[in-house]
Design a binder for these strands. Structure first.
Lengths: 209, 209
DNA sequence: GTCTATAATATGATAGAC
DNA sequence: GTCTATCATATTATAGAC
């Protein structure tokens, strides 16, 4: 009998599909309960899978969590990356803020996942914060500073401006329970968007156009 | 022998002291790990107390958590309560923002405790959000609207303005890990305060003074 | 690849001596 | 009031049949 090859990667499609299902379920569970609050049981149940089967795809609970963070970290930065030095400053910032508000509305669970991770000291993504994120923000802060120096934008600290944009836009995802409790209703995405743009950008119009 | 009285409350001072110690330790642990992430062991260790002894003062872990939230909920609202309809609008808002920034800096752990509770759906303080908090915000939004109607403040949605103030000021406590990673240093309270006041209030100066 | 059963551990909570 | 010892349970993770 000719040498039987070591088993090749069969059913890669099923594997990919199941990994997707697990990550999807895990996002729902982790974003509600945090890393420690979530149990593998809950994730398995939501993914319609037995616990051992789930642990066949991801050996440890932590592996699912890390995969989930990595899976979305890059998307998260895309709108900031898109800030174009050659564009009109107010239009660029407006586009950025709108994109962040839409991300908060479309995927509040991802926002809460990150919020939770950072709130707890960012043990898993510390390197990302101090590396790629710091690097990108430095670059874009320079762009904003350049706009201000050229009189196209009123002066303000670029770093704190970026923090303010993050804080306000993510607030609607992370603290939606509070927002809805205070307003007494489910927040309307569009009206919040309009109000936020107004509050954050009005003060940035240059003095002498 | 005359009838011995049922034991009176002896050592109430020690009890009060120990409860204080426990709450102090619990704040540190819960604010880092959240309700589920925190263990009674950790809290007891940090309070220099045995676990059973701690559970003599608070029968269940949840009791400590609730006591902690109630213990600080009221303080949390004080600066907003102090917003004075008779005062100068920009000065009042400036004072409010500054007070919130100082609270974030002085007690980031309390801020994170609330952030965590709300992030996870606010199971313990839902009534507080829909009751006293909603009530107070409605009242103060009315004050802001009144200022705007009288031309003392540029127009903006009062509710979303309050949300923006909360979001930005609490960001420095809740996401301090990220802020410090991006800035590459520990944030200076005073410069952040100045920048935040500038970003949030500049757009609110009335058009025709 | 998927399951049942179970090991190994962590943790909330209690009993009972002192 | 405080301690040591321990129970009961929940949960991560693995073994091994199918």
């Amino acid at each position: 009998m000719p040498h039987a090859k070591a088993k090749p990667a069969i059913n890669t499609r099923i594997q990919a599909r199941n990994k997707e299902l697990i990550l999807e379920a895990a996002l729902e569970v982790f974003s509600v309960s945090g890393f420690r609050g979530a149990t593998v049981d809950q994730i398995a149940a939501r993914a319609d899978m037995s616990k051992p089967n789930l642990l066949y795809y991801f050996r440890r609970k932590e592996d699912i969590y890390v995969a989930l963070l990595e899976h979305t970290l890059s998307d998260w930065l895309e709108p900031l990356r898109a800030l174009d030095p050659a564009g009109d400053p107010l239009a660029e910032l407006s586009r950025y803020i709108t994109a962040k508000m839409q991300m908060s509305e479309a995927n509040p669970m991802a926002s809460r996942l990150f919020a939770n991770e950072i709130l707890h000291g960012a043990p898993m993504i510390e390197k990302f914060l101090k590396g790629p994120l710091k690097q990108l923000v430095a670059e874009k802060a320079e762009v904003i500073r350049f706009w201000m120096a050229n009189g196209k934008l009123a002066h303000a600290d670029p770093y704190h401006l970026i923090f303010a944009i993050w804080a306000v836009t993510q607030h609607y995802a992370d603290f939606s329970v509070q927002v809805e409790a205070v307003l007494g209703r489910r927040e309307n995405g569009r009206s919040a968007q309009k109000a936020v743009l107004d509050i954050l950008l009005r003060g940035l119009r240059p003095r002498q156009p």
